[in-house]
Amino acid sequence: MIELYTDSSPNGFKITIALEELGLPYTLRHVRIEQGENRQADFLRLNPHGRIPVLVDHETGITLFESAAILLYLAEKTGRLLPTLPQTRWQAMQWLLFHASSVGPLIGQRVHFELESGEKNPAAIERYRQLSNAAFAVLDQRLASHAYLAGEEYSIADIAHFGWSHIARIIDFDFSAFTHLSAWHERVASRPAVRKGVSLPAPATGA
């Protein structure tokens, strides 16, 4: 049995989407970050960093945090959502890591400075707007000639990026000028597993 500890966040949605795409049975454990449940001792034993998501696979005895690691684990466990041909397989991993090292952290910082920080810092807001738009431009260029980030095959790289593009839409971080990225977003958003995944454990809001 798989247990997923998560909340309604971009990183959490990546894993609910993947599990729904793969059709793996799992038990959802809602960790309410706004109530500080991610700082309770039981959760910190699973992830000392106090972040969601955390996946516990009781069948294999493996516990993982970090969404990119969980996505790779699920793909390896099932033999799905990661291309088998070396060239496209490494493209998927490359774009997954681009998300983990660049896109996710950049949008996360933009969220902090633009929406969450009580004291506005115009220089930081402008910096992270520019950096996130530059990352969007890189994705847009890639998607101008490929249906998905690894090529023509939907993969965990798309799931990772969609977690944050979904939130960007909700909180009005406009990327409509990037037409190929926008078309890709709609393509991924139309998948039934994606529609269900972003509703678990609850839909995100712009609040």
Rank of each mutant, 00 (worst) to 15 (best):
R110Y: 15
E37A: 10
L71C: 08
L24P: 04
L85Q: 13
Q87V: 13
R32A: 07
R39I: 07
T63I: 02
G50K: 14
T88E: 15
Q91R: 15
F113H: 13
L19S: 09
T63A: 15
L71R: 01
L55F: 06
I70M: 01
F113K: 05
P86A: 14
S101Y: 12
Q40E: 15
F65A: 15
K120Y: 01
A92Q: 00
A75W: 06
Q40V: 05
A92W: 03
N38F: 00
W90P: 03
L46R: 09
V31S: 04
A100L: 09
E76T: 13
F98V: 05
V54C: 04
D42T: 12
A69R: 11
V54M: 05
A92E: 04
H58P: 08
F98A: 12
S101T: 14
R89S: 10
G36W: 12
N47T: 07
P53H: 10
Q109I: 08
E116T: 09
Q40D: 01
E116V: 15
S117T: 12
L96V: 09
G23S: 11
S101R: 03
Q35G: 00
L85H: 11
E20F: 01
L74G: 11
R32Q: 11
Q40A: 11
G61Q: 13
P83C: 07
V31M: 07
V31A: 10
P48N: 14
H99R: 09
L55H: 09
H30P: 12
S117V: 03
P105V: 06
G23R: 05
L19E: 06
G61W: 09
T60C: 04
L115M: 11
H99A: 09
G104E: 10
L71A: 11
L74E: 02
A41P: 09
T78C: 14
R32T: 07
L28R: 00
E114W: 13
L46M: 11
S101N: 14
P25L: 10
P25S: 12
Y26N: 10
G79H: 06
E34G: 00
F113A: 13
E37N: 04
L106S: 01
F65K: 00
H30F: 15
A92K: 08
R110A: 10
L64D: 02
Q40T: 04
P48A: 09
R45C: 08
L81W: 09
L82I: 01
Y73F: 11
V56I: 13
Q91Y: 03
H58D: 13
P105D: 08
A75I: 01
H49D: 07
Q87E: 15
G104M: 02
I70D: 06
S101W: 00
P83D: 03
L71D: 06
E114K: 14
V111M: 02
A100E: 10
P48I: 05
E59V: 02
L72F: 01
L97V: 15
E76M: 06
K77G: 05
T88L: 02
K77D: 04
L85K: 10
E20C: 06
E114N: 06
T63V: 14
V111I: 14
F113N: 12
S101M: 08
P53F: 02
V54N: 04
L81V: 11
A41M: 10
R29V: 12
L44Y: 08
V103Y: 14
L44K: 14
S102L: 00
